[in-house]
Simulated assay, not measured.
Amino acid sequence: MVLLVITAAAVAYGVAAGLLLPRAAYRLSVEPDAAWHDRCPEGHPIPGWLGPSHCRGGGALSARHRYGAGPAWTAGVAGVVCGVLGGAVGGRPEAAVFVAVAPVLLLLGIVDLAVQRLPDVLTLPLAAGLALGLGGAALVPGAGGSWTGALIGGGALAGAYLLLFLLNPAGLGFGDVKLALALGVPLGWYGWGVWALGAFLGFLYGALYGLALVLRGSGGRRTAFPFGPFMTAGALTAVLLGGFGA
Score class of each variant (00 low, 15 high):
Val30Arg: 10
Ala9Gln: 09
Pro45Gly: 12
Leu108Lys: 01
His37Thr: 02
Phe98Cys: 11
Ala128Leu: 15
Val77Lys: 03
Leu106Arg: 02
Leu215Lys: 09
Gly175Ser: 09
Leu187Glu: 06
Gly202Glu: 08
Gly51Phe: 05
Gly149Lys: 04
Ile46Asp: 05
Gly219Gln: 00
Asp112Gln: 11
Leu20Arg: 13
Leu105Gly: 07
Val97Ala: 13
Cys82Ala: 15
Val77Arg: 01
Gly86Met: 10
Ser53Met: 12
Asp120Tyr: 09
Tyr209Met: 11
His37Ala: 08
Val214Ile: 15
Ala72Arg: 08
Arg64Ile: 03
Ala143Val: 09
Val5His: 01
Val185Asp: 05
Gly133Asp: 06
Val77His: 04
Ser62Ile: 01
Ala158Asn: 07
Arg216Val: 00
Ser146Asp: 15
His65Gln: 11
Arg64Gly: 01
Ala224Thr: 03
Ala143Ile: 06
Gly59Asp: 08
Arg92Pro: 03
Gly171Phe: 01
Gly245Ser: 15
Leu211Glu: 04
Leu134Lys: 04
Pro47Cys: 12
Pro52His: 01
Gly57Phe: 00
Arg23Met: 13
Gly217Pro: 08
Gly153Arg: 05
Val140Asp: 00
Thr237Glu: 08
Val140Thr: 09
Val81Ser: 00
Tyr190Lys: 09
Leu157His: 06
Val77Tyr: 02
Val99Asp: 10
Gly68Asn: 05
Ala128Met: 12
Leu19Met: 04
Leu162Met: 09
Val101Asn: 04
Gly173Glu: 01
Gly243Tyr: 05
Ala199Pro: 07
Val5Phe: 05
Gly184Thr: 12
Leu85Gln: 05
Gly184Cys: 13
Ala150Cys: 08
Thr123Pro: 08
Leu122Asn: 08
His44Ser: 15
Leu28Tyr: 01
Val2Lys: 06
Ala150Gln: 04
Ala199Ser: 14
Pro32Asn: 04
Leu20His: 07
Val239Gly: 06
Ser29Arg: 00
His37Gln: 11
His37Tyr: 01
Thr74Leu: 08
Ala78Trp: 01
Gly243Cys: 07
Pro186Asn: 12
Thr223Asn: 12
Ala24Arg: 05
Ala63Lys: 10
Ala9Leu: 15
Arg92Tyr: 07
Pro93Gln: 00
Gly155Tyr: 00
Gly129Ser: 14
Val2Pro: 06
Gly58Asp: 02
Gly154Ile: 10
Pro22Trp: 01
Lys178Cys: 09
Ala137Asp: 03
Val5Glu: 04
Arg23Asn: 07
His37Asp: 00
Phe244Cys: 13
Ala95His: 00
Leu113Ile: 14
Gly219Leu: 01
Trp73Glu: 10
Ala207Asn: 13
Asp33Pro: 03
Val15His: 05
Phe174Ala: 08
Ile46His: 09
Ala160Tyr: 14
Ala160Asn: 05
Val5Leu: 09
Gln116Thr: 13
Ala114Glu: 15
Leu122Ala: 10
Leu50Ala: 14
Ala158Leu: 13
Gly206Lys: 03
Val89Lys: 02
Gly154Val: 10
Tyr209Asp: 09
Glu31Gln: 14
Ala25Gln: 11
Gly87Ile: 12
Pro229Asn: 09
Asp112Trp: 11
Leu172Gly: 06
Asp120Leu: 13
